[in-house]
Design a protein around this nucleic acid. Structure first.
Lengths: 168, 168
DNA sequence: GTGGATGCAAAGAATTTGCAACCAA
DNA sequence: TTGGTTGCAAATTCTTTGCATCCAC
């Protein structure tokens, strides 16, 4: 059976080593929060820390399930992600079976994904293709900027039926 | 007040003249249905006919509200749109406040949209930029095809805060 | 001090599912 | 004939909201 998207029920094992507060991405995250006019709170930093550990887009439920016990309420994660998205800290990467999956939007190249409608597998597009897409998206953003749009975000997702896993 | 997205409550007036069965797009739609292994039924043709009349992406609720009275159940529209999307007849264009908006995916150039998070206004990107995006998307599709993906679909949406409407 | 942020509980809304009847191929 | 489709009703599930309390700035 092909690997499926991690769910809130079976979160992938968290990296035990907690990121030090001096992690460059968290420092950047703090700056981004302030720039966006958002307050730097414990729940928010915990959420951003967990988000930075992810290697692929995750759902809010999954993210919450992976936080230290009692870190914060699920509703808070919803509210934070909405604020983060408006502030450009995170990006809604794909919508998988009606659920939004998010990824950090800073400190790393933008990568686009494809969701298998059959197995739920999530795969990345090649850096080359992601780069091409990013370029075209940049042009769109520029057009929108000129037209006066602010806080522009975008969501690009591919879906399809993945080939059966190669037999071994 | 800027124009907002049409809703199920205030559907825009339908064009009274019903499309003749010989409408090229409906003929194409019929062919697409068969190609996708889907049956050609009355509800489906009615839905596709209504969808072809739209000039911008619409929600399922809105689409259903615009159908002739008693044409078919709302659930049927949901199921048909899901089937159409898998079959490549329609494209989920944007997700507006948690609601998916669809548009036909054949017989017309692909256009991408931007949703205003403040007013709900939906606007098109220029044909030039949409074309650029389409090219990059085509490359992605090609990569996925080579990798063995079938029935590839994609969703690309921009959102932002639109500038205040110009005073007149 | 003050307005944004959070927790808890409850509501809201889009979408899905079960099942029997129906009909396109 | 037969498996895909549809209608109706009910359930599911993701997401949002209200409000009192709390805390970052």
């Amino acid at each position: 059976m092909p690997p499926t998207l991690p769910t809130a029920e079976n979160p992938s094992p968290e990296n035990a080593s907690s990121l030090p507060e001096t992690d460059p991405r968290l420092i950047l995250a703090t700056a981004r929060l302030k720039t966006a006019g958002l307050r730097v709170t414990q729940p928010r930093m915990t959420i951003l820390e967990a988000l930075c550990r992810q290697t692929s887009p995750v759902s809010i439920e999954y993210l919450h399930a992976g936080l230290p016990a009692g870190a914060c309420d699920l509703v808070t994660v919803y509210r934070c992600m909405a604020a983060f998205e408006r502030g450009g800290l995170v990006r809604r990467a794909v919508i998988h079976q009606g659920t939004s999956l998010y990824q950090v939007a800073f400190g790393q190249p933008e990568t686009y994904h494809v969701v298998c409608r059959s197995s739920g597998t999530l795969a990345e597009l090649s850096p080359e293709v992601s780069g091409e897409l990013q370029k075209a998206v940049a042009k769109a953003r520029e057009e929108l900027r000129v037209k006066g749009y602010r806080e522009v975000a975008h969501m690009l997702e591919f879906s399809g039926v993945a080939p059966p896993a190669a037999p071994r």
